[in-house]
Design a protein around this nucleic acid. Sequence first.
DNA 1: TTAATGATGGGCT
DNA 2: GCCCATCATTAAA
Length: 182
Amino acid sequence: MKLLSEDFFLQDAVDVARQLLGCVISYDGCSGVIVETEAYKNDAASHAFRRTARSEIMFLTSGCWYIYFVYGMYHCMNITTNGIGQPGAVLIRALQPLEGIDIMKKRRKTDDVYNLLSGPGKVCDAFGVDKKLNGTTVHGVMRVFEGKLQHDIIALPRVGIRVATELPWRFCVKDNKFVSRL
DNA sequence: TTAATGATGGGCT
DNA sequence: GCCCATCATTAAA
């Protein structure tokens, strides 16, 4: 498989989010096909709406992992986009499991493959990822490979936000059973 | 089946 | 002190 180039992530977050569907994330023996993403940039729902210590990585990098801790017990993984100085990131919301299914079942405490990677918190839990990888590049220990998508893509409002809910910046593989919800 | 709620702690005003 | 880019469990219908 071919690694996605650094230039790929210089594109706008919305374009990257769409094109990431079908690509493969691989980390420490676990991998999966991306089936659901969300784009965040300068909008009111984005952490980058205000420049803070946490969101600064989105202003300073492109093609790096932005991993944050949320709701007291979960992590979410994103990839920074839009180039240097232009904040943006794509949240990885769900994948279809490929490798490491046994260890992911153990970490997730379930045998249901449809419950392994169907949500941003679940993805980090199953992969064993936390803030230690924040700021590392997509050419580092956790990588993203090109994929061919043979299904349609649907655009929907983003999940779990209170503002900017009208923007259809959530992208899912149509009719895929591994997305976090319909 | 869907809807409401509790868990749990870092980030930010 | 309030707000979360969530999820598992419980309650209701």
